[in-house]
């Protein structure tokens, strides 16, 4: 089967400022991939390009062999690094919204996760804390049976105790044949679930490797390797 995500000499500039420069990579299906890099390295830019929220300055990005369009949007489940939900809806209305637009959305899964996190579906987003909103977004995103999950900083805003729960939620809910790409700089927290890593720095790919290779052949943890590669 073809790669789920491919970049060919992909570049993105904002004005004169390059955010991604000449990125070429392939992500195979059925893996959990860490997109790792310091703040401002271009992680979010890459994910937004895959979602069609940004237009490439040069090069191409392909999802399942297609440039981002309505068909790729059907198979991507995206968790942005910000709150993208309006604040006046109630949680159950947003679930209805997702069910209406995504054929692969499973409302029963969402209600089940809400219950386990003790979030009331009748609550309005306006009254929720930032952390709770992030949990609601993650629940929505993980209640889809997508081919590609793009999670931008899914654990950035929550406390360490909630992190484990969220990682557990991600692991136990994703579509088994799907691919997950998680962007973060909190490596030690997610290291144990990753199959493959992409290190990205100042808009360029610094390293791609399977995690087994790093552990077995180099005898290092991903965290240690990261510190080595990105030494200041």
């Amino acid at each position: 089967m073809s790669a789920i995500l491919e970049c060919e000499s992909l570049s993105k500039r904002f004005g004169n400022k390059p955010a991604l420069s000449d990125v070429s990579l392939e992500v195979a299906r059925g893996q959990i991939v860490g997109l790792l890099g310091p703040n401002g390295s271009g992680k979010s830019t890459l994910i937004k390009l895959a979602n069609g929220l940004l237009t490439p300055s040069n090069g191409k990005i392909l999802v399942g062999g297609r440039e981002p369009d309505i068909e790729t949007k059907k198979i991507i489940s995206y968790l942005p690094e910000r709150t993208y939900l309006n604040d006046w809806m109630r949680v159950h209305e947003i679930i209805e919204f997702f069910s209406d637009f995504y054929a692969d959305f499973k409302p029963e899964k969402a209600y089940d996760m809400l219950k386990r996190l003790s979030i009331d579906p009748q609550d309005r987003l306006k009254t929720m804390s930032k952390g709770t909103k992030e949990k609601v977004q993650l629940i929505l995103v993980m209640s889809r049976e997508a081919d590609l999950y793009l999670l931008d900083e899914p654990i950035g805003g929550v406390d360490p105790a909630a992190r484990d729960y969220i990682l557990q939620t991600i692991l136990s809910n994703y579509n088994e044949n799907g691919t997950i790409i998680i962007s973060t700089h909190l490596i030690s927290d997610i290291e144990k679930i990753l199959d493959y890593v992409i290190f990205i720095n100042q808009g360029r790919v610094a390293l791609t490797s399977s995690v087994d290779d790093i552990r077995d052949n180099q005898g290092k943890t991903v965290d240690a390797l990261f510190r080595e590669v990105f030494k200041c």
Partner: peptide
């Protein structure tokens, strides 16, 4: 607000032309 700000992240990732 709904298309060109944060909410656009949701609206433009819906499978809608």
């Amino acid at each position: 607000r709904n298309l060109l700000s944060d909410e656009g992240y949701l609206m433009f990732t819906l499978p809608v032309k």
